[in-house]
Amino acid sequence: MNIDSTPTAEPIARLIQEFNELPGIGPKSAQRLTYHVLRAPADKADALADAIKAVKEKLSLCSLCLNITDSQPCAICRDEERDHTTICVVEEPIDILSLERTRKYKGLYHVLHGVIAPADGIGPDELKIKDLLSRLNAGQVTEVILATNPNLEGEATAMYLQRLIAPLGIRLTRLARGLPYGGDLEYADDVTLSRALEGRQDM
């Protein structure tokens, strides 16, 4: 079907336009998606519309850990089975998914929503650092695990947090930085290798 020559009903044109604005979707894909929706059963189309609406209407940031949640506080912060004396600090909500997949960690989280990136104008005030400090000042937490990424900004952010947290007398740990599983010693850079040596463990 050539939509350029046939007059397109306004709702169709509108949906094509909306799809076209999504990342990675060109005009051709936008047309294909639109006609897919058009042909789909009504309940399928409703489900899609509801899912999109729910993302915007029902999700917010957890008042405690600032993870994305549909309840206040989030399921992790509410869970009495978890260890409420340990907080793992991560850059983004998606990092929580990775850590949860391991099923090894039973404490709580705190999402910074970014890292210190001076040249992008992102400093501590742009991150959820004040929220972290007020959680720590509440007194229940005995260990903070810094799980920012092992790259320059992640390390700088960890060093900065260390300055702020050290005076509180709370145990502070950093995720071990070393060789990636499936990686090859030959290709490891010196920084990774020296960190891996520092973090070596008895067998």
Partner: peptide, 22 residues
């Protein structure tokens, strides 16, 4: 890597100055 400037990266003031000159 020829030089990783690890002593620069291990200190918050130094690494921040490095980012500034970049």
């Amino acid at each position: 890597t020829i030089d990783d400037f690890l002593p620069l990266k291990d200190n918050l003031e130094r690494v921040s100055r490095g980012l500034y000159i970049s």
